[in-house]
Design a protein around this nucleic acid. Structure first.
Lengths: 196, 196
DNA sequence: TCCTCTATAGACCAGTCGGTCTATTCTTGA
DNA sequence: TCAAGAATAGACCGACTGGTCTATAGAGGA
């Protein structure tokens, strides 16, 4: 699923990765084509050859890549955890990791792009919505494997995504990740309350 | 506190309000000076007369205005509610209101700006951090008046802000506010669990 | 009445934006 | 060996960006 396309991956993939990296840090409007081109060492003609739709089309591909990568991280984290509580803590760690390795320069590209562009660029809004849905479904499935009933698993997954996304934004302004742990604690309390 | 400055308010205040309205919808990078000028019917010279620091300085003022307005809405909502649970529901209603009256065109300007610009525009990041702190302090105080101990009130306030901010972003991509109510339900469960 | 300071007005600027276009190079099958 | 499509390369474009500058209008005191 990660290598579906038959195209020679180098240039096209480099463009997508460069765009994803930059949008992750500066958002959609804050990322210029010239930045993407410089980062991927590509001339302009190449971009419009691979993405006739221009910047929006490339951004959609970049958001899809980001969605897939984080989804894989969620699945890997699930393999390492044996309880729903443990998985919530693992999600908190994943959320913190992005902030710490980037020195608070990178947030969630889906949230950033969604807030910047919805609903003016429908393709981008759709990409964000689909990305959130992928993540929430994955998290809900993981909660189910840890014994939560389907409906409660889905609810807790939505609450988790909302909590961590908001905590990420606030943590970035503070250069302090503690609100992410606080959010995890809250989710664990919800989980525990539901178990009773 | 709402009318501290001695300056004749018209032009300057119009600029701030126009900037706040636009940043609310399109974010910092998505809002151009020309948009702000057009919306406030002002020529360019006026902007740089009142805000020598240019766009960033005006944006900081706009974020401060937004902070203050929403803070007043929190305080008003607190007057209408008698329990912590009721206040959580009132926060959910406030969060939903922005989305619904703007047809999902407006999110939280603090979150949007923070994700777009941190940490490249320190003044903006600071304005966002300060804004979040104002809101969280207000919410924590309100929880205290409803009987929560200080530490727990602060924790629940942080969890609330994170949850509603994240829910707002996701709701915007879906054009559906239900995740905001779900978030409120989760916060109420945390509250109840802490009461035991 | 005139002077001075505040504020308004908008022409103008260099730089950058996303996007188009044509020329060239690479690759590959005949 | 050569033709043809795929891919690369970057010059070029109009529109727009945030920002500067000078000219002028308005207000208030002497």
């Amino acid at each position: 699923m990660t290598t579906l396309n038959k195209q020679k991956p180098d240039t096209r993939q480099n463009l997508i990765q460069a765009a994803a990296w930059l949008i992750h840090r500066h958002g959609y409007h804050g990322t210029g084509l010239s930045d993407i081109l410089a980062r991927s060492n590509a001339p302009k003609g190449v971009l419009y050859y691979h993405f006739p739709g221009g910047k929006p089309e490339l951004a959609v591909a970049a958001l899809a890549l980001t969605t897939e990568i984080f989804n894989q991280q969620l699945l890997m984290a699930a393999k390492r955890t044996r309880t729903a509580t443990g998985f919530i803590k693992a999600m908190a760690d994943l959320t913190k990791e992005d902030l710490l390795v980037s020195d608070y320069r990178a947030g969630c590209p889906l949230t950033t792009t969604a807030l910047e562009t919805a609903p003016e660029e429908p393709a981008l809004t759709t990409a964000c919505r689909d990305g959130f849905e992928v993540w929430i479904s994955t998290v809900a499935n993981i909660f189910e494997t840890h014994g939560l009933p389907k409906v409660k698993a889905r609810r807790l997954a939505e609450q988790s995504m909302a909590g961590f996304e908001g905590a990420l934004a606030i943590a970035r302004t503070r250069k302090d990740v503690s609100i992410i742990d606080l959010t995890a604690d809250g989710l664990i309390q919800i989980l525990t309350a539901q178990r009773q």
